[in-house]
Structure formats: C-alpha cells, structure tokens
Amino acid sequence: MNLFLRELRAHRRSLIIWCLGMLAMVGGGMSKYSGMAGAGQSLNSLFASLPKSLQVIFGVGDFDLGTAMGFYAVLYLYIAVIGAVHAAMLGAEIIAKEERDKTVEFLLAKPVSRHSIISAKLIAGLVNLIVLNLFTFTASIVIMSRYDQVQAVAGDIGRLTAGLFLLQLIFFTVGTGMAATNKNAKAAAPRATAILLAAFLVAVATGLSNDPAVLKYLTPFEYYSAQSILVDGVAVTYHILTVIIIAVMIALTYAYYQKRDMNV
C-alpha cells in the first residue's frame, strides 16, 4: 500500500501535465473545427483531393468532416498517439526508475518481495491510466457540447475513450515489459517508444494498402482506430489479441523482474 501511494504521488505531476496535453489536443483540435465549420462540404472535398497517403496520415477515413463528431473521430488518431506515448513511457518509467535513480538498493533492502513491488506499480499505473481516460472523456464531452448535442455524441465519445483505454493498457504493459526485461534502465523508455513508433508506422502502412492483410494484426493502433470503433466495429480477433498482448507483457514483467539481477 505504501509503495502504491508513493507511486501515485511520484507520477501526480506528470499525470496533470498529460491531462493538460489531452485538453489542449481536444480543445485546440476542435477549435479548428469551429473555424472550418462553415466550410463543411469544401473541407471534405479538400481532404478528398489529397493523395491517399496523406489522407491516411491525417486519419481521415470515411468520416464526414462537416460534422463535429466526424471531425473528432479524425482528431482521435492524435489523441490515441498521445495516449499511447503516455502509457508506454509511464510503463517503462514506473518500473525502470528505481534502477535509473539508484533507489532500488533502498527499496529491495526493505521487507518486500519483487512481486509485490511490481503489483503495486502496475496498480498505480492503472490508476493513472483511468484518471487520464476519465479526464479525456469528460473534457471531450464538455468541449463537444459546444458543437453538438451531448446526447448525440456521448455514446461515440465513450466508445472511443474505451478504445483509448485499451490501447493505453497495451502500451503500458509493453512499457513495463521492456523495463523488466532490459538491464539498462535508461533504455527502457526509448525501447518502448520505438515499438510504439513502429506500430504507428505499420498502422499508416496498412492504411495505404491492405496487402498483406496480416499486417494490421501487428499494430494496436489498427485494433482501436476510430474507423474500427465507430464504423466497422472492433473485431473479436482484435480483442483476443489485446488480451494476449497484455497478459504476455504482464507475465514477462513479473517473471523477468523476479529473476534478473538488479542494476545497482
């Protein structure tokens, strides 16, 4: 319990900053919508005239940019990227920082098992993710209420936020997995974000061409894209993959952290 509270406290400031980042993303993004709202149809035709590759990078998909929800759905790609970066770095950091800051010698000399250390850190990280998602959801609803009826958009925003949460869970556990398996504490966060970047690039690639189709299973961004959540419906395979990735990463985190020498 003490360790859990300590972690909440340690990540409090960075959580606030990430929340503000999300607010800026949603608020700033939607203010662009209000600027273009009158342009409605022309915005759609503008994006339609862009090359396919740019459309994919902007995450336009099948959405109607003339509506607030359609615009938010496009914006969601960036929200997801921010969320993924936050989660990966949080996961890597929460495990690796004890070694990076040399506090591991203090902590492990206490009567705690390595398993309970990992448990406390995972739960503290989970609380951070829940807070960020609740905040993002609330901020989105409040901001969207300026452009549309809340009842009309709340369901879609809720589903997108749920997707964001699952995406964050995946990258959070990837982060903890990288930190636990990596002897060099400083390499954990760069590794986790490298995986994230690779996943994002694969997502862009699959958006450009559906060939080979198997590629889309490699990237969680594809599992919980706005297209997948709002239009196609998230495939069961994606849910299963999510569970598998998270389970494997958590198992790796516990197993490696238990077995390896601490770097002091």
Partner: peptide, 20 residues
C-alpha cells in the same frame, strides 16, 4: 526467504540516492 529476513535487517548502501 528474502522479504521475511529483511524485516530484521538495516542496510546502509555505499552510495545514498533517494527519491526526488
């Protein structure tokens, strides 16, 4: 029996680093 034993151990590491 690490965690159990460490209840009765006090340790001063050679280099002291503590939480920011």
């Amino acid at each position: 029996h690490g965690p159990e034993i460490r209840r009765q151990i006090g340790y001063l590491p050679s280099e002291v680093f503590y939480y920011d």
